[in-house]
Write a protein that binds this DNA or RNA. Structure first.
Lengths: 215, 215
DNA sequence: CGAGAGGTTGAGCAATCTCAACGGGGGTGG
DNA sequence: CCACCCCCGTTGAGATTGCTCAACCTCTCG
């Protein structure tokens, strides 16, 4: 089980105090961790597997706002109520903290607060990047960007196993599943990627893919 | 000149120390405050006017990621380099802090760090909302949402003066200026808003507009 | 009064969506 | 062990939303 990345710069003593208030948990694929609008009583770190965050419109349209991987912290965007729904994409391991206890601990551990602020910073930068993708990029650019980012994030060195299905990809990229599928096929025909089964993607021409990603 | 909202929960002494390292500044409409990629040497608060943040793609496509109004803090999303460009939409008043001094002050003023984390939290929530808009909403829903949000943010009580032109609205909403223009006309024909000159918009039927906004 | 910037409107077009059919792989029950 | 079924993904054809290109209008500023 991966170390809680949120503890990066903490001393042993600090880490201990944090661990003391955390409890480990487990979710099966497809299970909900919490729903948009629920009172935010806990915060979390992901220790294994992949989690998705999303918001729904009244008629069921869905926008996935992010995927969390091991080491990621979940709780920055919440005040009293969760602002989105969190659902396990795969089998999921996590560490749960009662929100109140966590916030109190923050006062005592300035390093932790610093660390959280740094995380918030990179999440904001990532959110801006995603706005560019959703607002201004073509389907080809979106899918290419997504594959490159995911490969980097998962450290898969060009041979990635997509943890999510086409529906999740589509709802993250602001497209339909058909367009995602067609676009992957296009990238394959151009020789930029290879597809192995439903979830295997191999990046065959990173330069070309970067050019497609348009950034 | 509005009080720096970032000082909300600070004591007088703390406020004084913050003010001591800040210098006031002024920008004309259209002037750049900084560019994406520049080393991030300063952070800011907006004291008057409106500022826009944007990112560009290689071919000139632009996505505006946010508008800042008086009281807003600018510097959360940056580490060593600015991740977007900041440009004055109107005449702009601001307070500048050398980044290094500001970060050092953070160590001494836990209230300030707390405050910043809270701001980061609401910015992240806003960013998620914007992803829904860009990824899943129709042009009508985007424009309606935008008008409602702006009215609320500016506290204009249904009679708003848009501080930005159609190009900026389009680049914020992931549309073209023509579509923004046509959509405003549609909303007007339906009796939901009235248009007064280029920048005046009156919300005539808030319920109807909310229904259009789809959330 | 002329020029230019910003905004509106129209016509045709293109990218993406919708709807529908088809295919393959994994799990289940006979 | 095999056949069937169901879920997920792919592909195709036609519909639709929003984009592109172009004309025109209005207001402001020399």
């Amino acid at each position: 089980m991966r170390e809680l990345a949120v503890c990066g710069v903490l001393s042993d003593a600090e880490r201990k105090r944090l661990a003391a208030i955390g409890r480990s948990g487990r979710l099966g694929a497809g299970e909900l961790l919490f729903c948009e609008g629920d009172p935010a009583q806990e915060v979390f770190t992901v220790t294994s597997g992949v989690l998705k965050l999303y918001k729904l419109l009244a008629d069921g349209r869905r926008q996935i706002t992010g995927f969390l991987v091991p080491g990621d912290f979940l709780g920055l965007a919440f005040r009293d109520h969760y602002v989105c729904t969190a659902e396990a994409v795969t089998e999921l391991g996590l560490c749960r903290f009662r929100r109140r206890a966590f916030v109190e601990l923050l006062r005592d551990l300035p390093h932790l607060e610093e660390q959280l602020l740094a995380r918030a910073t990179s999440e904001l930068a990532a959110a801006q990047e995603q706005m560019v993708l959703l607002g201004r990029k073509t389907a080809l650019e979106r899918v290419a960007s997504f594959l490159l980012r995911l490969d980097e994030r998962m450290g898969s060195g060009g041979r990635l196993q997509l943890p999510m299905n086409r529906t999740d990809m589509a709802d993250f990229l602001g497209l339909t599943i058909e367009t995602v599928s067609r676009t992957l096929t296009r990238l394959k025909r151009r020789g930029l990627i290879a597809l192995c089964g439903k979830s295997g993607v191999e990046i065959r021409d990173r330069q070309g893919l970067l050019a497609c990603a348009g950034c």
